[in-house]
Amino acid sequence: MPRWLWFPAALAAAFIILPLAAIVLRVDPATLPALVTSPSALEALWLSLRTATAGTALCILLGVPLATVLARTSFRGQGLIRSLVLLPLVLPPVVSGLALLYTFGRRGLLGQSLDLVGIQIPFTTLAVVIAQTFVALPFLVISLEGALRTSGTRYEAVAATLGARPTTVFRRVTLPLVAPGLLSGSVLAFARCLGEFGATITFAGNLPGVTSTMPLQVYLLRVDDPDAAVALSLVLVVVAIAVIGFARHGRAL
């Protein structure tokens, strides 16, 4: 390696670390406890934790079967399905939110039928969970499909010749073997749920206690009460650091 690479490399590291330091330095330790434990902050934090947990659970429920089908079968159009499923990863979140609005909104693809039976999803807490699941699902599917491909089918074949039905093989061999991949995928999905902003504000709005999660609260407060916005941001930074540490431990990153 040429020695001069050290210089741009250090620049790149500083580029990431400096803004994080800036927000940490902006925090006033004296007022921090009060700001983080204010009723509106706690309300947003509680809502964020609830929705992100529900979103992650939905990701696991939907993502495990999808990743397994993608990793263990081949069918016409599979490549296309995989590409489409991964799309929310690169789609601007606001576009995802708009897409969800035209799906579940009152005049949306499914929303019209839902409206007839009295179910309205947009601008509810459920909408927050749906938005989070939509953008986080690809993270889980990617990690898990990779883990499934790496672990291969040899153990599953042995289990089958030992008399285990496909469901038993899936439960007792396939899933335990990819448990680390599933765990790190879930952690990444949880982090993406927790940080969701664009799709949420488009599809679920910004109603305190109902759809106003931490990132939305930060955005809301940044002008009127910058100290509170910074305090909440610090909480999100700490959670993000914990997630990275956790995911790296499980070797997802």
Binding site: R154, Y155, A157, V158, A160, T161, L162, G163, A164, R165, P166, V169
Partner: peptide, 15 residues
Amino acid sequence: PPHARGVALLAQDPL
């Protein structure tokens, strides 16, 4: 299907 055949397979690797 393999699981209902009553045929066990021992491979080169113990697996």
